[in-house]
Structures are given as C-alpha cells and as structure tokens.
Amino acid sequence: MKTLLYSLLLFTAQLLRAQTAISEQVISNLPELEITEGINLHMISPEPIQYVDLSTAQLTGDLPVPNIARIKMTDNLISDKDKKKQFTPFFSGDTVGIITVVGQSFIAQYKAVYRNADNLNTVTNIHIQPEAMQPIEFDKMTFSNRELRKFALDIIQKKADKKPVRTENSLNLGMQLNNVYVMGDYIFLDMTFKNISNLSYDLEALKFSIEDKKIHKTTNNQSIEMTPVFQLNAQKHFRKNFRNIYVFKKFTYPNSKVMMIRLIEEQLSGRTIKMKVNYSDILKADTF
C-alpha cells in the first residue's frame, strides 16, 4: 500500500511540476491529519476549492460549500472482487491515505492517520495554513479570490480625490461610479449607492449588462448579462450609504453599446435606478 501511495504522489508531483514553483513532496514530510470512523473532518480553505483528491477508497468526501472539503472514512467498505471480504481494519497510527486539496492559487497535501473512536481529541475541522500551501503558477494572469479581495480592500481605502466617473439620481436614490481600475486581466468598478430618504433600502439585485446605446423600434434590443467574478461585500440592506467593489474579467464592447447598471429593490417597492457607462469610461481606467 505504501508503495502504491508513493507512486500516486510522484505522479501528482510530475503532473504539477510544470505549473508550480515548488520542489516535489514525499509522504514522510507531509503534515498529518487524524481521522476516525463516524467523524467528519472539515478542511477550511481561505479561497474556493477547485479540486480534491483522496488517494485510497478508504476515504470519501464532498464539497458542501466552495471553501470547505468534508472528508470521512468510508462506511462498510467492501471489496468489488469479493463482496464478503472487507478491508483489513486499521490500527491507531496507520496511514489511511493522502488528501490533496487544490485551491485557486495553491496545492496542499496531508497524510490521513487513523485514530480509534476512543480518542476524544480527534480533530473535527482544520484551517489550511499558509505553511501547508504550495503556490501554483498559471500561464495567464489569474488572481484568486483572496488576491482580488486584497486589491478591492486597497481600492476602498483610497480617498475620493477626484470627481466620480458617472453619477445618477432618481427617487431619492443616488448611484455613483467613483472610479474604474484595471489590474492584469481584471476590471474593478468602485461604486457608491446613496439613499437620501428615511426609508431603508433592501437590495434585491444589482444587474450589469451590455446593451444597445440606441434602441430602434424595428429591431430588438440585444442585452448581454454580465456577472462579476468577485464582489467585496455581499450586503443586501443599507440605510444611507453603501460602497462596494465589483470585479470583472476583461471585456470590450463597441461604441454603439453601453454597460447598463441597474439597482433593483425588493418587490413592491419600485425604487429602481440605472446608470449607463460608456466604453470610453472603461478605457480611462486607472491602475493601482
């Protein structure tokens, strides 16, 4: 079994060698995780998990949410060759398998070690720590959510030292495009929403789309919905002011079209405000 696990680990290392800036790992150097029958181990990642590999059939798991991998020992595991033959039971300290977690910018590997059910100190959840992460290099400039969050926080800490790019006001509401920034293949929209009334605002949706600048009666309006790859705050309610950063992968559109941004309140209210952003506003994006 150990020879098989070592071969699998070497294969994984060879597959990732061209994409990573790290030296290959060996099983003896991997950090250990204790695992027990009937107890789930939750592995919490600082960024969305892209892939999880469990090297043996003694381990099973799933991704209940993007940032958490749930791992456990397989229940009533029976060999396919002999339905009556079960795997040899483990003894405390035996290696159950290798757990590999791949995030947007890292790979982390652990050795799962069996502990019997009498061990009351079995860990039920861990946070993947920086020292366990090995960075993955990508050919294209791709940022993880953690990096995008850092960039967005840098932007939101900036003071508004110049006139907003665009401003719209309607129904005692204000929508303001403070600035546009670009970093690599990403576009950051710094936006502020203002509520002048005393009635708080319950946000149902903020929609982005590319639409025709001029709509002719003889033609249908072509609208392409755009979804941010990241937003700093997921807030749905504000009383007076709300500022947020929305991040998109690089996009282009002709002068005959505009980006339309619509702020929509929950049903029965009708307080909706929209803003048109010309492509020339995007082309004037700052760097940071």
Rank of each mutant, 00 (worst) to 15 (best):
N40S: 14
P48H: 03
K72E: 11
R70C: 10
L54T: 03
G38F: 01
K83V: 13
L30S: 06
M73S: 02
T60P: 00
I39R: 07
V52F: 04
V65P: 09
P64Q: 03
P48L: 05
T74L: 07
S79M: 12
Y51W: 13
L41M: 08
L30W: 07
L63V: 02
P46F: 10
Y51L: 15
L33E: 05
S45A: 08
P48S: 03
L33V: 09
T36A: 08
M43I: 14
N76K: 12
Y51R: 15
I44Y: 11
D82F: 09
L41V: 06
Q58M: 15
A57N: 09
D80K: 14
Y51T: 15
K81G: 12
L77K: 03
I78D: 11
I44H: 12
I35R: 02
E32N: 11
P31A: 05
L63Y: 02
D82A: 09
L54R: 00
S55H: 01
D62G: 07
D53L: 14
L41G: 04
D80C: 13
K72H: 14
I35A: 02
P31N: 06
E37D: 11
T56H: 05
Y51F: 15
K83R: 15
I71V: 05
P31K: 06
K84S: 12
Y51D: 15
T36Q: 09
V65N: 10
P66G: 06
P31Q: 04
D82H: 10
E32T: 09
T56D: 01
T36D: 05
T56M: 04
K84I: 09
L30C: 07
I35G: 01
Y51P: 14
I71L: 00
S55I: 02
L54Y: 03
R70P: 07
E32C: 12
I71T: 02
A69W: 02
I49V: 07
K72Q: 13
G38M: 01
D53P: 13
E37R: 10
A69K: 00
N67S: 13
D80N: 14
T56P: 03
E37N: 10
M73V: 01
T56F: 00
S79L: 12
I35F: 01
K84E: 08
N40Y: 12
I39M: 06
D62F: 11
I68F: 09
D53A: 15
K84T: 12
M43E: 04
N76R: 11
N67V: 14
L30V: 06
S79V: 08
L33G: 03
N76Y: 08
S55D: 02
G61F: 03
T36K: 04
G38W: 02
I78T: 13
H42W: 14
E37A: 12
A69Q: 02
D62E: 08
L77E: 06
V65T: 11
E34P: 11
I35T: 00
R70N: 10
L59N: 00
P66E: 07
S45G: 02
N76Q: 11
V65Y: 09
S79F: 09
S45Y: 01
T60I: 05
P66W: 09
